[in-house]
Structures are given as structure tokens and as C-alpha cells.
Amino acid sequence: MGTPGAELERLVEIMRRLRAEGGCPWDREQDLRSLRPYLVEEAFEVLDEMDRVAQGGPWQPLCEELGDLLFQIVFHAQLASELSEFSMADVSKAIADKIVSRHPHVFGEKRADGAEQVLANWAKLKAEEKKRKTGSEGSVLDGVPTAAPALLRAERLTEKASRIGFDWPDLAGVRGKLDEELGELDEAIASGDRDAIEHELGDVLFSLANLARFIKAPAEDALRMAIRRFTTRFQHIEGALRAEGVPFGEATLEHMERHWQAAKTREKALPPPTTLPRAPLSTVRLRVPDLAAQRAFWDALAPVLGWASPRSPPDHASYESGSLRLDFLAGAAAAPSGALVLILEAPSRRAVERLGTWLQTHQPGALGEQSPGRLTFRDPAGLAWEYATPAG
């Protein structure tokens, strides 16, 4: 497996070729304006996978979405490089320099007693940097995007203000402020004044976001999880009504409420994961009697599968799919016939057909059974493999 630096350089070179003469027509047409929606979309897809991991889901999809987001950054840096504005190296250097300068308690002589002092020091260092660049310290609230979701923005603004001491001394004060704002909202609702209602509702939401920050339960995340629960429960209602044959839109509120409560009960019956899955299968290591023959076979097969062949010691032959690594080692017999079948997931039926054609042409003796979306083959070590789509 390559180093982060080497893989990033490879990605930068891929991006350069996509944009170069004779590269990809779509990539060559893009500019900063056209790429904006893709950047936002990829960021939200990363957030979706983070939520799934938090609920006990696998990590590999998050890795893939982070890669998609990184590609957007590399794409923007390439556009800037073509105009001689800055390069990906400049982007990496700028953030590295910034992180080092804002962590003097790690990379310098300063000490920091706890996270709160780290944040306070960060605010001071940021203000000093801005003063050197612009002549003014600016506002401690600078840097929160105006286009960010409102709840997220409210929380970040109060968090930034707290770095210079503008904060409630304890949770009781924050909770009391929320009660005060709810009382004022009730008065506005009673008055029927639409402007007053909007004003006071905004204050309530802002107070809730501040409370969320104080209790370390981000409001944007909490609301997103509530939306997910609502969606799951409501879809349960829809499915139950369809199963009962209730015509669309004709169920009573009481009928739907019964199914809603059933969905909540089912939800509570499934305990949340106590641990997250942090040990997925990453490497399969197999000993084979003839490593040279095995290497020759898999060196030719790997590109057909879309796998990489990383550099390995002489007594290893290694191949990677992105989520799985195969290591073949010299020195022992392979498993007896039929004792072990290794199954690889194919991305499409076309991929299965392509592999079948390759095997028929280059390794006809290796190909076994073949049907739409599935085939089997054996390698020189006698190991049995199945290559199939999920629907197989």
C-alpha cells in the first residue's frame, strides 16, 4: 500500500491528465461555478456515511465518500494551477502551516491545560494572524459561512463567542434562557402578530442551538437524527397501511398513530450498538506451493478485476481491491479441493462477462461454471474462486 503522499501525487496527476488536451471532455468543461453543487453534494454524502458509522455501520463507504470529497479539492486546485494561482502543494502547505502555528502546545513551547484553553489560544492566534495580514483583528465570529445550515451556524457563532468569555457560567443559565424565550413565544402566539411570532421563534431556536452546544449534543446532528427516525417510522406506517389494504390517504389519524407507536416500540426493542465495527476483514493471507506461477496468473488477472498490485517482498505476491488485500506467500500447499471457496463481488454482469472472456482467451483451463452474473475459476494453487454480482 502506498504512502499518503504518493497516493495524493497520483491523484493530482490523474486530475491533470483528465483536464489536459485529449483528456475527459466533461472534466475539461468544468469551472468553479459548475463544480459548486458537486462539492456541496459530496460533503453531505460524507456526512450521511458518518451518521451510518455512528449507528454501527461499516467504515469502508465513509472512506470512499471521503475520497470523492478529496477529489473535489484536487479538482479545484487543478483549476487554480492552470491559472497559475496556486497548486495542490500550496493548499497542503497552507493548512499544514496553519495547524502547526495554532498548536504551539504541541509543536512549540507553550502549555495548554485542557481543551478550553486550546480553543481560547486558537482564537487569539487566529486574531493575530488576521491582524498581520489585514491590519485588523476582525471579529471572533468571522469564519462561520453564511450559507451554512442555520442551526449549525447558530451553534458555531455561540461557540466562537465563548472563546473570549462571552458565555453562560453554567447549564442552569442556558436552560433558564430557553424557558424565558419559550414564554415570550407563547405571548407572541397569543398576540397573533406574525412578525413577533417569527422573531420569538427565532430566539427559541437560537437558544436551543446554544443549549445543544453547552451539553455537547450538536443541534444540527440531533435534528438530522430526529428526521431519520421520523422518516423510518412514517415509512413503517405507510407499509403497514398498504399491507392492510387501506387506500392511500384514507387512514384515520388514530389508525396511523397506532402504527407510529408500534414503530417506536420496535425501535426501542433494538438496542443501539455498544461498540462500533472497527475490525473489518482487510487482508486474506494464503500460502501457495508455486509462488511464481501464482504471481504470473494474478499479475495478469488483477487489471481485469480492477485491482492494484502494490510492491511486496520477493516471497509475497500482493493484490488490492481498495477494501481487501490478498497476500500469497510461498512455502505451503494450498487448501484441498473444495475445502475453501473465496467469493469476490463483481460490480456488474458486464464485469463478469469481461472476466469470463479473458479467462477463456488467456486461461481456458482455469474457468469453471459460468452463468449470467456469476462464474467460478481456479488459480494455479488450486484455490477456488467465485466472481458474482450481489444478485448473482
Rank of each mutant, 00 (worst) to 15 (best):
residue 238 E to L: 12
residue 247 P to H: 11
residue 254 E to S: 08
residue 256 M to H: 01
residue 244 E to M: 06
residue 248 F to H: 07
residue 246 V to H: 05
residue 252 T to Y: 06
residue 238 E to H: 09
residue 263 A to Y: 11
residue 262 A to I: 07
residue 257 E to V: 06
residue 258 R to K: 15
residue 248 F to W: 07
residue 252 T to V: 04
residue 253 L to H: 10
residue 237 I to L: 07
residue 251 A to P: 01
residue 234 F to S: 02
residue 240 A to K: 10
residue 238 E to Q: 14
residue 234 F to C: 04
residue 263 A to S: 15
residue 259 H to R: 12
residue 269 A to V: 00
residue 246 V to N: 01
residue 246 V to Q: 06
residue 256 M to P: 04
residue 248 F to Y: 05
residue 234 F to Q: 11
residue 254 E to C: 02
residue 249 G to Y: 11
residue 247 P to G: 06
residue 237 I to D: 00
residue 260 W to K: 00
residue 234 F to G: 01
residue 234 F to D: 04
residue 266 R to L: 15
residue 248 F to T: 06
residue 248 F to D: 04
residue 250 E to R: 13
residue 236 H to F: 13
residue 243 A to K: 12
residue 256 M to D: 00
residue 266 R to F: 09
residue 256 M to E: 14
residue 235 Q to E: 14
residue 259 H to V: 08
residue 247 P to Q: 10
residue 250 E to C: 07
residue 252 T to N: 03
residue 241 L to M: 10
residue 241 L to G: 06
residue 238 E to G: 07
residue 242 R to K: 03
residue 268 K to Y: 14
residue 249 G to H: 12
residue 257 E to T: 11
residue 254 E to G: 01
residue 265 T to P: 00
residue 261 Q to K: 15
residue 251 A to H: 01
residue 250 E to V: 04
residue 269 A to I: 01
residue 242 R to S: 01
residue 246 V to I: 15
residue 260 W to Y: 14
residue 250 E to M: 06
residue 254 E to K: 05
residue 260 W to H: 08
residue 259 H to L: 09
residue 264 K to N: 15
residue 262 A to R: 05
residue 264 K to A: 15
residue 238 E to N: 09
residue 262 A to T: 10
residue 250 E to A: 09
residue 256 M to S: 11
residue 268 K to G: 02
residue 243 A to N: 08
residue 263 A to F: 12
residue 235 Q to H: 11
residue 261 Q to I: 13
residue 235 Q to N: 13
residue 269 A to S: 15
residue 248 F to L: 10
residue 259 H to F: 14
residue 236 H to R: 09
residue 237 I to A: 01
residue 236 H to S: 06
residue 249 G to S: 13
residue 267 E to P: 02
residue 251 A to Q: 04
residue 257 E to I: 02
residue 264 K to S: 15
residue 248 F to K: 09
residue 266 R to C: 09
residue 235 Q to P: 04
residue 240 A to H: 03
residue 240 A to D: 02
residue 239 G to E: 11
residue 255 H to K: 14
residue 237 I to N: 03
residue 269 A to C: 08
residue 265 T to F: 00
residue 246 V to D: 02
residue 238 E to W: 03
residue 263 A to L: 10
residue 250 E to H: 10
residue 247 P to D: 10
residue 263 A to P: 08
residue 250 E to W: 03
residue 245 G to P: 11
residue 244 E to F: 05
residue 258 R to V: 15
residue 240 A to V: 02
residue 250 E to Q: 12
residue 251 A to E: 13
residue 267 E to R: 12
residue 259 H to W: 13
residue 264 K to W: 14
residue 257 E to F: 05
residue 250 E to N: 09
residue 257 E to A: 09
